[in-house]
């Protein structure tokens, strides 16, 4: 089964690699099995070029929320 993105149609300013990152972040940061208290991540060098679509925004917010919760748990 092909693993590539099969159909993409958004604004003409979007590159396929950007969409790949956007979709990958949306999936790996926002979804998936969680072992409570064991997510240890740090927001690093992700470009904020997707702010207009608000998908990455929600992803980064998720990441920051996880970090906040972790800090709260540690206190």
């Amino acid at each position: 089964m092909s693993s590539s993105f099969d159909q993409i149609l958004v604004g003409e300013e979007w590159e396929e690699t950007d969409i790949s990152l956007l979709e990958t972040l949306d999936h790996v940061l926002n979804r998936g099995l969680v072992i409570a208290g064991e997510i240890t991540i740090a927001v690093a060098d992700i470009d904020l070029i997707f702010v207009g679509l608000n998908v990455l925004v929600s992803s980064v917010e998720t990441a920051q929320e996880v970090l906040r919760n972790r800090q709260t748990d540690a206190d």
Partner: peptide
């Protein structure tokens, strides 16, 4: 598979 969320360290 059942994916773990990014950053799962145990």
């Amino acid at each position: 598979p059942l994916p773990f969320r990014f950053g799962t360290l145990v």
